[in-house]
Amino acid sequence: MSAASSTAGAVVPAWPRAAGRPDYASYAVVPARHPWRWAGTAVVALVTAAIIWSLATNPRWEWGVVAQWFTAQSVLTGLAETLKLTVVAGTLGFLLGFVLALMRLSSSPLLVGVAWTFSWIFRSTPLLVQLLLWYNLGYLYEKISLGIPFTDVRFFEAPTTTLISQFAAAVLGLTLNQAAYSAEIIRGGILSVDHGQLEAAAALGIPAWRRSTRIVLPQAMRAILPTAFNEIIGLVKGTSIVYVLAYSELFYTVQVIYNRTQQVLPLLLVATVWYVVITSVLSVAQYYIERHFSKGAVRTLPPTPLQRARAFFSVHAKGIR
């Protein structure tokens, strides 16, 4: 470095150039052109414009009816039920999935076996069948009781049909199904963390629970989050399947309405737009949560879209002035 600064002021002799070659160093640099990229962009822009145009101008979409029902009380109640199912089944599903993942990673063959069997059963049967089975559990077992197995001691006993409401069946089905999938996602995330991390934490005398929650999980999150958000977004729309239990979530609600008004497509659109809204909010959340967990994984965090926009405007504002 000192050598460079000492020669900076001095006259540096020109590097001998091959005889006859022009002085390229004084030429301006021109970036390569990408005509096909421009052609592709034009085609996509045209198709997009056509789609938007038809959506806006075809009267059969009946946007007026969509607007009329979009914030109707019954639709909003259905929406709340959908969100409730998603939150409850998502939370319980991922918690149970975490436990199952830890079981799969334990060194007890029984725990591994049970966790594996759980995932196997719930991943290999259709969710629809699971939901109907839970709802009709009363047919298989008339009473549900809590007590000490193989004795007559009972702490609690109730008829199955009063216990398994539509909500309970929906939550049971969605949760157990979700747990089976999220167990694998979480297990994959945990496996992606270098074993040296655990060893270093163990060598420092950090307790096991703390090792999992503070050292392994935050690093595993980077692998878990993209797939986990896929699952949650899938779950938001997946809740619509509980319409088979006549559970009045968003999708069942719009079905009830269009059966009465015969405005099938506009009402399906109402539900669709709401699903799009939820997913969009989740996608934004995903971006920021992933960014949070990428701390330390990249040398410098990329700017958020908001920061980027602010930087863009501050630069261009200066240009205008």
């Binding site: 040296g196 991390q197 060893e199 270093a200 060598a203 050292i215 935050p218 690093q219 967990f293 330390g296």
Partner: peptide, 11 residues
């Protein structure tokens, strides 16, 4: 204990 691969916690 000091490891060959450092094993610092990256996050």
């Amino acid at each position: 204990f000091v490891f060959q691969a450092f094993n610092l916690f990256p996050h």
